[in-house]
Amino acid sequence: MQEAMIKICGVRKVYRIGTEKVIALDRIDADIQKGEICCIFGTSGSGKSTLLNQLAGMEKPTEGKIVIDSVDITKLREEKMAAFRQKHIGFIFQSYNLLPYMTALENTALPLMFQGYGKKEREARAARLLKMVGLGERLSHYPSQMSGGQQQRVGIARAFAAKPDVIFADEPTGNLDTKTTAQIMEMVLAFARENQQTIVLVTHDPEMASYADRILTLIDGNIVKDERKDKK
Score class of each variant (00 low, 15 high):
residue 72 D to W: 04
residue 129 L to Q: 12
residue 128 R to A: 13
residue 124 A to W: 03
residue 214 R to W: 04
residue 180 T to W: 08
residue 4 A to C: 02
residue 21 K to I: 05
residue 5 M to F: 07
residue 67 V to T: 15
residue 206 P to T: 15
residue 113 M to Y: 14
residue 59 E to W: 06
residue 33 Q to W: 08
residue 102 M to Y: 12
residue 19 T to H: 07
residue 58 M to Q: 13
residue 112 L to M: 12
residue 33 Q to P: 02
residue 5 M to I: 07
residue 7 K to L: 07
residue 15 Y to Q: 13
residue 154 V to G: 04
residue 26 D to Y: 10
residue 52 L to D: 04
residue 82 A to F: 08
residue 87 K to M: 13
residue 9 C to V: 11
residue 116 G to R: 05
residue 31 D to H: 14
residue 166 V to D: 12
residue 10 G to K: 13
residue 151 Q to R: 01
residue 220 D to N: 14
residue 201 L to Q: 12
residue 188 V to S: 08
residue 19 T to P: 04
residue 92 I to M: 07
residue 46 S to K: 00
residue 36 E to L: 01
residue 74 T to H: 11
residue 68 I to D: 02
residue 9 C to Y: 05
residue 155 G to W: 10
residue 98 L to D: 10
residue 229 K to S: 05
residue 168 F to W: 09
residue 197 Q to N: 03
residue 42 G to I: 00
residue 156 I to K: 00
residue 96 Y to D: 12
residue 88 H to E: 15
residue 217 T to S: 15
residue 139 L to W: 03
residue 165 D to F: 08
residue 9 C to S: 03
residue 226 D to A: 05
residue 170 D to R: 13
residue 162 A to N: 14
residue 81 M to N: 06
residue 176 L to Y: 12
residue 75 K to C: 00
residue 146 M to K: 06
residue 68 I to F: 02
residue 179 K to G: 04
residue 32 I to D: 05
residue 170 D to S: 08
residue 13 K to L: 06
residue 216 L to T: 01
residue 138 R to P: 04
residue 47 G to K: 11
residue 79 E to N: 14
residue 198 T to Q: 09
residue 107 N to T: 04
residue 2 Q to Y: 13
residue 131 K to M: 11
residue 226 D to M: 00
residue 2 Q to C: 14
residue 226 D to C: 00
residue 183 Q to V: 02
residue 170 D to M: 05
residue 95 S to L: 10
residue 196 Q to F: 07
residue 203 T to Y: 08
residue 78 E to H: 11
residue 49 S to K: 06
residue 212 A to Y: 01
residue 151 Q to K: 02
residue 178 T to R: 08
residue 152 Q to P: 08
residue 56 A to H: 07
residue 124 A to R: 12
residue 48 K to A: 07
residue 117 Y to H: 09
residue 83 A to V: 07
residue 223 I to K: 08
residue 164 P to Q: 09
residue 199 I to M: 09
residue 226 D to R: 03
residue 232 K to I: 15
residue 230 D to R: 11
residue 180 T to Q: 01
residue 164 P to E: 03
residue 6 I to K: 09
residue 216 L to R: 09
